[in-house]
Amino acid sequence: MAYVVTESCIRCKYTDCVDVCPVDCFREGENFLVIDPEECIDCTLCVAECPVEAIYAEDDVPPGQEEYIALNAELARQWKPIVERKEPLPDAEEWAKIKGKLDQLKR
């Protein structure tokens, strides 16, 4: 069972999770991160590091966000790995609590 990055990460892109990942399973888009389900070893380290609580075990993804399971798998095949922490997006704090951001995702 892999972990999944959900909606809360869109337009925030905090990378605290990247620092603790022992297998470099995160992939980076312009305004979102995903987890490669083929690389994730289910260690749970990233969950506690996410300041916007965007990361869930695949079986625990909140209702209404199940589409992020497939989205992580799809985008992980397209995006490049991110292995070092970076600054969050400039307006991350403003976007952190906003719901319904899928239309904001830049592929």
Rank of each mutant, 00 (worst) to 15 (best):
D42V: 10
K13A: 13
I55K: 03
R11C: 14
I98Y: 04
E28T: 09
A2W: 07
A70F: 10
M1G: 06
G64Q: 09
V52W: 00
W79S: 06
I98P: 03
F26V: 01
P51I: 04
E30N: 10
C25Y: 00
A92H: 11
K97P: 00
Q78K: 15
I41V: 15
P63D: 11
E49R: 08
I35A: 11
E94D: 09
A73Y: 06
D103M: 00
C17L: 12
P51G: 07
Y68S: 06
L105D: 05
D19H: 12
D91E: 15
A48S: 11
C12A: 14
A96Y: 01
E28F: 00
K99I: 12
V4I: 14
I35W: 07
N72D: 14
E39A: 15
P90G: 11
L105F: 01
D19T: 14
V20W: 03
A48W: 08
C17P: 05
A70Q: 15
C17W: 05
G100C: 06
K80S: 14
L45V: 11
V5Y: 00
V23Y: 03
E66M: 01
W95Q: 05
P63S: 09
Y68F: 15
L71P: 01
R85S: 10
I82C: 05
L105K: 06
Y14M: 06
C12K: 09
N31S: 07
E94L: 09
K86V: 04
P62I: 08
C12Y: 02
N72M: 12
L75Y: 13
V47D: 03
D42W: 06
R27T: 08
P90A: 12
